[in-house]
Computed example of a mutant assay.
Amino acid sequence: MDATNKSALVFFDIDEGRELKTDEAFETNAWDLAFQRYTVTMNGGGGNPTGQVRVAVLKDQGWDSLTAAPAEGYQQDASEPVFSGVEGGWYFYNLSVHRLSPREELLYVVRSSSGQFFKLRMLSYYDSAGTPARLSFRYQRLPEPTTAP
């Protein structure tokens, strides 16, 4: 995900696994996550009050062992985006070398704009050449929880 533009959001539809152009994101309201440099917001709460996206933050949860979406713990962005504030945010910042590193112990479950569930883990803030704000992440669809969040 190329979030190198300091003044523009990059919108992502997790249901379709694709980036949306800004006008399409606003017209359809089908975006789930938006990226701007290291900031990740969701289509719900502070990111967009009309959006329905919610995210649960799971700590020390293995990727393979999460086989269904949790039934509770979902939040929307408030004064601080969930990806930045809950459990300290999705990254560590190393001040001595000025580099961001994903927090591998955090796993996110996204309830998308269409009501589907996906597990998501942030992988990197840099591309293979070391360019910042070229985020990569892994995601996979999950079965719905037994009780609606």
Rank of each mutant, 00 (worst) to 15 (best):
Y93H: 08
T67I: 13
A133S: 01
S124F: 06
F92Q: 12
R111G: 06
A56L: 00
L33R: 00
E105K: 02
D77Y: 11
G44K: 00
R141G: 03
Q75A: 14
G45R: 06
V55R: 03
W63D: 14
Y38K: 10
H98R: 14
A71V: 08
A71Y: 09
T41I: 10
Q116D: 07
T146Q: 09
S113G: 13
N43C: 01
L33C: 04
A129W: 12
R54Y: 12
G46L: 05
G89Y: 02
D2C: 02
D2T: 02
F26R: 12
T146S: 06
Q140A: 15
G46R: 13
E16A: 10
Q75Y: 13
L95E: 15
F26W: 15
Q140Y: 07
S128Q: 15
A69F: 11
Y108H: 10
E144W: 02
Q61A: 04
F92V: 06
T41P: 02
S101N: 11
Y126E: 12
T131S: 03
R103S: 03
Y108E: 12
F35E: 01
Y126M: 12
H98I: 05
P81I: 09
S113C: 14
Y91T: 15
Y38A: 07
L123Q: 15
P143W: 07
K59M: 01
V110Q: 06
Y126H: 14
F26G: 09
L66R: 13
P102G: 15
L9S: 06
M122Q: 14
N29I: 01
G45P: 12
N94H: 07
D2G: 00
T146D: 05
D64Y: 07
D60N: 04
G130K: 11
A56I: 00
D77E: 09
L120N: 06
G47N: 05
S7Q: 08
L33W: 01
E87K: 08
V40W: 08
Y139F: 06
N5M: 00
S101W: 15
A68C: 15
G115F: 03
A71W: 08
S113W: 06
R18F: 03
S112C: 07
V82W: 00
P145K: 13
L9W: 12
G89F: 06
L95V: 09
K21W: 12
T28Y: 05
N29A: 05
S136L: 01
G47T: 07
A8V: 02
